[in-house]
Amino acid sequence: MRAFAYIRADSTDSALRGMGSPTQPDRLNPQVQYLAGGTLLLDLMKLEVLSPHQVIDINGLESEYGRIELTEGGLHLGALVRMSQAADDARVRRDYPVIAQSLAQAASAQIRNMASLGGNLLQRTRCTYFRDTSWQGCNKRQPGSGCAALNGPNRQHAVLGVSDQCISTYPGDFAQSLVALGATVETVGPTGRRSVDLEALYRDAQQPELETNLLPGELITGIRVPAGPWTRNSAYLKIRDRVSYEFALASAAVALDLSEGRVREARIALGGVSYRPWRAREAESVLKGQPLTQANATAAARAAFATARPRAQNAFKVELGQRTLVRALLQVAGQTS
């Protein structure tokens, strides 16, 4: 871990002042980083994947960004709400089970106590070639250096949204549930406050070194999830080798608005199989207006993976991802346990 200066921000203004005016090239390895839970930042700083000169501790802003609010219009999650807080919140569990489940199945109890929701959205891939700086082929860490995972051990890697530059997997769970529900994030930055569609926050794999469309110095302050008839009828299914404390091999966030056995509206996002939190709109379209049968669920899953690009060791994810989605759909529809 490289040396850095540590400051505490006690207001949004002081946080932004500490950030100064970061420049565009800074986006690869920003010189100033916000510190919330630290579970991601400290990990990557120890590995020197990130090496900021300055760390701004924003945990003092909890009173401002640490609340969960439920209104008729939807759910508002402050960015400094801890994962465990949202996972255990009775209102979230009742009205937005997919969100509570995606959080409860992520990481460990200790990490969930530490990690902020805002930071969680910005998780970085677990790809070894990215995390271990002694490897030379990683376009995400060193643009133009290649991708050692293309022909290396790639069991964990993505099959959806990949490119020849990068096949890394987005490792989170929470973002899938939010993307399925059409959430937006609120940010504040040197140029002011704005609200961004979460799905659009994540960039594609063409330029893997740039993962999000956050502007330099921008801070996520909150997440807004619109209400909808599907949010209560939702679930997150995560498939992995271990029963717990492991990143997904495949996951599905599913929310359904069902009426008399027919799907009025389906909201689906996939994880563990994709470069970024992956909204499966093709699958949603297949289901729209149809009865939720095994056959239709299977057709939807096939549509979701129509563009999959498997590699040597992760070809099974095309099959597993489809099966995971089918199981999640049938589970939300009450047709299986």
Partner: peptide
Amino acid sequence: ALGRLPPEGEAHSRQEEAPT
């Protein structure tokens, strides 16, 4: 100095390694 602002325009050159 605590709270020193980062040097502008020097994206990847670290001026000093002295630990805080």
